[in-house]
Every structure is written in C-alpha cells, then in structure tokens.
Amino acid sequence: MKNFEYIQPGSLNAVSTLSKEKFVSSHLFAGGTDVLGLMKDNIISPDRLINLKNLPNMDKIVYKKGEGISIGTLVKISDIAENEDIMNHFTALAQAAGEVASPQLRNVGTLGGNICQRPRCWYFRGEFDCIRKGGGICYAYEGENKFHCIVGGGPCYIVHPSDTAVALTALNASIKIHSNGTMKEIPIREFFILPEDDPMKENILEPGEAITEIFIPELETGKKSAYIKLKERDVWDFMTVSIAAVADVSGSLINNVELAFGGTAPKPWYDENINKVFINSKISDLETNVKKIFNDSELLSKNKYKLQLIRNLTKRILNNFSA
C-alpha cells in the first residue's frame, strides 16, 4: 500500500470539509474491512483515509417501542446480530447480520460500511478496466457471469453484495445522511442506484456526505420479518441469492407482504408488483404464484439457475411464515 494520511476528525463538518478538499483524494473509513481490500487490489488509492470512529453517538442502538429503532452507522455487524431488540422486532436484520462474512469480519465491520461496500464482481476486483472502473466494456457480460444479476443490469451486471441492505430494504428503513452541514433522510428503497443511472457507483452518496444512522420504523401489528440466504459453500460466503420478507400471514392466508431480493440485481431488489402477486393470496397457491415473478429477467449465459433458486426461496420464506 502507498503512504496516505490517516485522520480521525471529531465532527461531521470536519469530515465534510476534509472529504472535499481539492487535489487530495479522500476516502471514508469505518471498520476498514472493505476499504483495505480495495486498496490492496488497487481499485482505490486515496491520499487520505478519514476514520469516522471519533464521531460522537454513532455507535448506539436506540429502540423506542411503537416508533422504531435507530442504529448508528458505526454499530458493529456482530452487535446487530446479537441485539435483543433487533432480534425480537426486526428479525430479518439480525438474521442478515448473522449471515455476514465470518465472526472476525463481523466484529470489525460496521452497518454503514456494510451497506456501502463495493461489489464483488471478480473483474472489478481484478485487473480489468471494466465499465465500473471507468473503462469501456463489461467483461462479465460475455464472460464468467455465474454470480451476476438477472434483473436491473446494463451496462454493468453486478449484484449488490450486502446482506444487511436486503433486510433493511424489506424493513423499509431510511438512511440519515450528513450533507454539508445539513441532515437529510432518504428511504433505503431510493438510496441504491442502478448502473443505467451511474455505472460507477452503487448509491446516491456524493463526496462530503456521510451516513450517520439507519432508522427502521416499528412493524405494524401482525407483521413479522425474516431473511434467508443461499450460498455456494457451507462456510462463510457472499450470497448466491437471498430474500428478506416483512409479512402478515394468518394461517394459510398471506394478508400482506413486502419482499426484497439479494444476489439478483445491482441493488437490493424491491418491486411493488412482486408484492402484489402474493398480497391476499393463499399459501397453497405459492407454487403457481412464484412462476409469475421475475418473468422479465435478463438471464446471462451462466446464471440461469438463479431464476429457479429465487422462486424456490420465495416459496420457502413465505411457507415459513405460515408454519
């Protein structure tokens, strides 16, 4: 790694000013588990790392019954997986956090860092000057695309790698962002972007902006949430596909459901039309109903298997709610 300046500012305004300084490339740093990997692979080579760890009050979890839960951006993934309030009231997030990487990485990685991590496409992580790195072609499109997306792709075909982002999308979380002296709150369903909007970034954050916390509103009475992740290997791995659901199921009837999909698109995939297929439907009709989703997929040469996998997973998660 080349030499760089390492700073730990004590205020958000300082973070903002330092990030935007001219002629100095800066990068925000939380647990550093993705940043250090990106630097090792020469995908980024910042002059300055801005560690957020001295910012006050960003490592807290505050639950207010009836309102929701606020999770500071610096809260560790391991603390989310083990937090009682999250396990009881926002189960999908605790389950997703428990599925992230290995214990060692969960102990260092933060929630903000997890949702802002860069994609794992092997061309992107390798020495290929692909579209996401400002080059002219997507090597995955006609190459090794077994783990690439089935919807929302073009001109780049990544899948978003974060487990927690999928759970947060189903849970309708919002992201609080400090932007040049003011705060704004963006629904997570509008936070991530598709390659057609900008193939070189995965979310709306601009230089100088930083996430401060993630807020999840309390679920309505009768609703529960869950997350299931499929991976290729038995031990830690990124998702092949995954699903998060917030649902109200009574007996054999699905009264209401919101689904988010991982491993399928360049962002956590959320589509009201998919929810509509299942709202007020019967568990016994799942077999036929799952055939109605993802019919508009653009399958690549080596990822056709994902379509069946994601439909089966949808069936499984909704079945579990009725069990």
């Binding site: 550093g32 090792k40 560690n51 760890k53 060692q104 260092v108």
Partner: peptide, 26 residues
C-alpha cells in the same frame, strides 16, 4: 491477506479480528 483464512486472527478487546484487515493505527 484478504480476510478469508483467519490465520492472522488475534483478539482485540476480547473479540476475534483478522489482523491482515486492520490498520495498526486502528
């Protein structure tokens, strides 16, 4: 060197971490 094997594991404040993915400064 990239967080995958755990050979570099040490405990930081009692928790296992990969010392290949943590800066000394941290």
């Amino acid at each position: 060197s990239i967080g995958e094997c755990g050979a570099c594991t040490v405990l930081m404040d009692g928790k296992a971490v990969n010392s290949c993915l943590v800066l000394a400064a941290q």
